[in-house]
Simulated assay, not measured.
Amino acid sequence: MSPRVGLGSNKIVMAAAEIADEQGMEGVTLAALAARLGVRPPSLYNHIDGLAGLRTQLAVHGLKQLYEAMSSASQGLSGSDAVLAMGKGYAAFAKQHPGLYEMTLQAPDADNAELIEEGDRVLKLITCVLEPYRLGEQGELHAVRGLRSILHGFASLEQKGGFSISLDLNVSLSATIHAFLAGIDQFRE
């Protein structure tokens, strides 16, 4: 049996990303995906390696999109301006694509080179933006962990409605990133 014309892995991943953003990671099932695409679930197996394979493809797609959001936000900037813009790009991606963002948080499959490569691209971008602070190799890695923790925490709290007080979230995020940068010397080796 030949694969359905017009149905390819890219179309499947895009439809799955929509479901993830609408319903969360748990909503991404082969039955829901097949219904969205108007096909029978067995048809999907011509293009994906089951639900686990689909989730890996979603994670790769999500990491590519996250990288683009962070990279384009910080392009042409340096120092605190770059860190702030990159952080805002991260938070905006997580807000616009909550399910896809959730997919990016899974530990990479050690057997999937593309997933590891995309995760490394995100980390290298953060490292590159923090490079002017001259923290040393280990200090830089600690700072990357700290900044990712701040950004993830902020994005997660925002997604879950944890910021119900009517204060400008942009101001809160900017102040938090500036506070991180004010103490960045703590990471220096």
Rank of each mutant, 00 (worst) to 15 (best):
G24V: 04
E102R: 10
L105V: 06
G79I: 12
Q106D: 10
R145A: 11
G119Q: 05
P132K: 02
Y67K: 09
L125R: 06
P3L: 11
M14V: 15
E118T: 15
Q65G: 15
G153Y: 01
K95Q: 14
N46S: 13
T104A: 05
A59Q: 14
G24T: 02
L151W: 08
S156H: 09
S174Y: 03
G62T: 00
L135C: 04
C128S: 09
S78P: 15
S71T: 00
V13E: 01
Q23P: 02
I177R: 04
L66I: 05
T176A: 13
A92G: 13
G87E: 04
I116G: 03
A155R: 01
G6H: 12
H142A: 11
H97L: 07
M14S: 12
S164P: 11
R148V: 13
H152W: 14
I165Q: 02
I126F: 06
Q186A: 13
V60P: 03
S156I: 10
N10P: 06
G50D: 04
A73M: 12
A31F: 10
G50C: 12
Q96D: 14
D109Q: 04
Q96E: 13
G76H: 10
A110Y: 09
Q96M: 13
Y133A: 07
I12H: 03
L44H: 05
H152Y: 12
A82S: 14
V13K: 08
L130C: 15
N112K: 07
V129R: 11
A16H: 00
A107D: 01
P132A: 02
S80V: 10
A32K: 09
L141P: 08
R134I: 00
C128P: 00
T127L: 14
N112M: 03
K124Q: 12
T56M: 06
L123H: 10
I48A: 02
Q106H: 14
E117L: 14
